[in-house]
């Protein structure tokens, strides 16, 4: 059995280059702004670097490596850190995140592209040979303020 498990995990890794994140963040504007979402990362093992996360609002983009609706970066200084997304349209969302422990803006990988920094998905959905699927990771963001918690290890 070969290292091809990583072909799919690789998609997760490459989704996180620093440039792509910045562009996504700058471009993110969403109409019907009447929901806010606080994302709290917990069980962080290394109190350094940053967490990079992308927020998806549809299955196609999430599962096929498309563009997130928002992206964010949170500096890590302890075991938990929170990010707030304001002005979201109420609806269904999913999150992919990784802990950029060395702070270089990229997922560290081995020579075959397998991720070597902690990563996580909303609902704490588990990876199965690649990023968790929308079916397992998506959750409702209602009108008003809501929160979701993600363990990232």
């Amino acid at each position: 059995m070969k290292a091809l498990y990583l072909a799919t995990t690789l998609a997760l890794a490459t989704a996180g280059s620093g440039i792509a994140w910045a562009q996504n963040a700058a471009a993110a504007t969403t109409p019907a702004p009447d929901a806010s979402l606080t994302v709290t990362f917990e069980q962080i093992e290394m109190p350094e670097g940053q967490i990079l996360l992308s927020l998806y609002d549809n299955e196609a983009a999430h599962d096929a490596g498309g563009k997130p609706v928002r992206a964010a970066m949170a500096k890590v200084e302890g075991k938990t850190v929170s990010v707030v997304f304001e002005g979201l349209a109420p609806g269904r969302y999913a999150i992919k995140a990784f802990h950029d422990v060395d702070g270089d803006g990229k997922m560290k990988t081995n020579p075959f592209g397998m991720p070597l920094e902690p990563f996580a998905f909303s609902n704490n959905a588990k990876p199965v040979g690649g990023p968790a699927r929308w079916e397992a990771a998506s959750f409702d963001v209602p009108v008003g303020a809501s929160e979701t918690r993600i363990a990232i290890q």
């Binding site: 059995m1 498990y5 990583l6 995990t9 588990k126 990876p127 040979g129």
Partner: peptide, 13 residues
């Protein structure tokens, strides 16, 4: 794989 599988890397299998 069956429900409950966790494959963060090939070493999980």
């Amino acid at each position: 794989e069956q429900p409950g599988a966790i494959v963060g890397s090939s070493d999980d299998t």
